[in-house]
Design a binder for these strands. Structure first.
Lengths: 245, 245
DNA sequence: ACCTGAACACCGTTCAAGT
DNA sequence: ACCTGAACACCGTTCAAGT
C-alpha cells in the first residue's frame, strides 16, 4: 500500500514562555499543534466551541496566526476531520482481513460509525474535499476494495459504497446531534428524556398514529448503535442478494 | 385521519406603509409571514442568507420583532422546516395508495428525498423536534404505516423506518451540500467539476487505489437521484427479504 | 398584544507592521 | 517564514420603552 500524501512536517507546539533572560518569545505553532488543539476543543465542548479566538488562546498566540496554516474555518474543519480519520483508518485496516467481503464492509462501516458517533462534527465534514482529506479517501478506497470481490458491475459497486457511506454518515450525524440542554446539564438522563418524548407520542390519537403507538416502546428503550447495525444489515442483505447470494 | 396540531392563526403580512394622513404605521407581521419569508430567503440564497436582520428587512420591521414569534434561530429553522414539510406531506399522501407496502415506502422516501435535495437545509432540521414539526411526525407515521402491512416485529419495523429516514436524510443532505464557488458562479458546470475531480482520482497510484480507478468513470458521470434510488433499493430488498419475500 | 432602537457580547477575516 | 494588534463588517440575543 502506498503512503498517503505526506502531511506537512510538524514540530511540537511551544506555548509562549519566558526565556532565562526574561525576554518573551513569540508564540510558535505548527500545523500539527493547530489541528490537535482544534480537535481537543471540538471534543471537549462541541462544534460551537471551536472559534479562532478560543483556538488562538489555547495555542498561546494571536488570532491571526492561525491563518498562516489554514485559509478559512472551512479548511480548518476539513483538516481536523482528516486528522482524526488517521486513527479511524488504522482501526479499519486492522479489521479488514475477512474472508467474506461483506463482513469486511460491515467492519469498516461500524468503525466509521463509532468515530462519527463520538464526534458528531465529523459527519458534516467527512469526504467533503478529498484533497484535504487523504485519510477519508483511503477509507473510501478500503471500503470499495471489498466490493471488488463481489460479483457486481462497476456501477453497482459505486452505488453500494455510496449507499453505505451515506447511511453511516447520515445516521451517525443524526444520532450525534447535540442532546437537549437538560440532558447536557445532567438534569435528566437520556432515558428520562426518551421517556418524556415517548409520553408525548403516547398521548397522540391512536387511530391517526397507529405506527407511532406501535413502536413507542421500542423507541423509548432503543439503543443507537443497535439501530444503526440493524439498518446496515438491511443494506448488506440487499447487496448480497444483488451479488447473487 | 386527524388534523395535525393547529397552526397559530395568521393574517397576511403588511409591509410598513404610510397612511393617507402621512403618518407611519408600525410594521405588522404574522407567524405565517415570518415563515414564508424565512423560507424564501433560504431558497434564494442558502442557509447563510437567513439572518434576523435580513428577515426583518424583508418583513419591513425591526430585528427584535421576530422574537415575538420564535424564541431563537433554532426554533425559526425548526418551524421553517415544518412549514415546507406541509407540501411534502401532501405529496406523500397522494402517492401512498399502493398495493405493495414496499412500493409505498419507496414513494414516500423518494418524495422526501426530492424535497431535501431541493432544500439542503431541510436535512439538518428534519424531525429534530416533533412538537415543532407535526408535519414531520406525520410523514414518519405514514412511512411507518406501510411497515404495519409487512410481516415483521415491532422492533424490526422501528429499525426499518429509522434506516430509511436515516438514509434519505443523510444522503440528501450530503448531496445537497453547497456546491463549490466556481460552480455556483457559473464559471464551470457540474460536469466539468466532476471531471476535474475525476482527473485527480485518475492520477492516484493504481496499485494503491484499485477501487477508485475502478469506479472513476461512474463517478464522473453519476446522477445523484439515480445513486440515491440504487441505495434505497438495497435497503428495500433487505427489508423484503426480512419480511419473508 | 405586538413592535422599535439601541446596546451587548460575540463572530470570521483582513492587513499593515513587526521579528 | 511566521506572528501580532487592531480594525472591519458582521452575527444572535436582550431589554426598556413605545403604541
Amino acid at each position: 500500500m502506498a503512503p498517503p500524501p505526506a502531511a506537512p512536517a510538524s514540530r511540537p507546539s511551544r506555548r509562549s514562555a519566558s526565556r532565562p533572560d526574561g525576554t518573551r518569545r513569540r508564540a510558535s505553532h505548527s500545523m500539527e499543534a493547530v489541528l490537535t488543539e482544534a480537535v481537543a476543543l471540538l471534543d471537549e465542548a462541541g462544534e460551537g466551541a471551536l472559534t479562532f479566538r478560543a483556538l488562538a488562546a489555547r495555542l498561546g498566540g494571536g488570532v491571526a496566526s492561525i491563518y498562516w496554516y489554514v485559509a478559512s474555518k472551512e479548511e480548518l474543519l476539513d483538516r481536523a476531520a482528516n486528522h482524526v480519520l488517521a486513527d479511524v483508518l488504522a482501526d479499519a485496516e486492522l479489521q479488514v482481513e475477512r474472508e467474506d467481503p461483506i463482513d469486511g464492509m460491515r467492519a469498516i462501516a461500524v468503525t466509521l460509525f463509532d468515530a462519527v458517533a463520538d464526534r458528531p462534527w465529523l459527519g458534516a465534514y467527512f469526504m467533503r474535499d478529498t484533497e484535504l482529506q487523504p485519510h477519508g479517501l483511503q477509507l473510501y478506497e478500503r471500503l470499495g476494495q471489498q466490493t471488488l470481490r463481489l460479483d457486481l458491475t462497476p456501477r453497482q459497486r459505486f452505488h453500494a459504497v455510496s449507499a453505505v457511506i451515506g447511511f453511516v454518515v447520515g445516521t451517525a450525524a443524526d444520532m450525534g446531534q447535540e442532546p437537549p440542554r437538560e440532558v447536557l446539564e445532567g438534569e435528566i438522563t437520556r432515558e428520562e428524556y426518551l421517556a418524556r418524548w415517548a409520553e408525548e407520542w403516547r398521548s397522540l390519537d391512536a387511530d391517526s398514529y397507529p405506527y407511532v403507538h406501535h413502536i413507542v416502546d421500542e423507541f423509548a428503550t432503543h439503543d443507537d448503535a443497535e439501530q444503526f447495525r440493524a439498518g446496515l444489515e438491511l443494506i448488506l442483505a440487499g447487496l448480497r442478494l444483488q451479488a447473487g447470494g
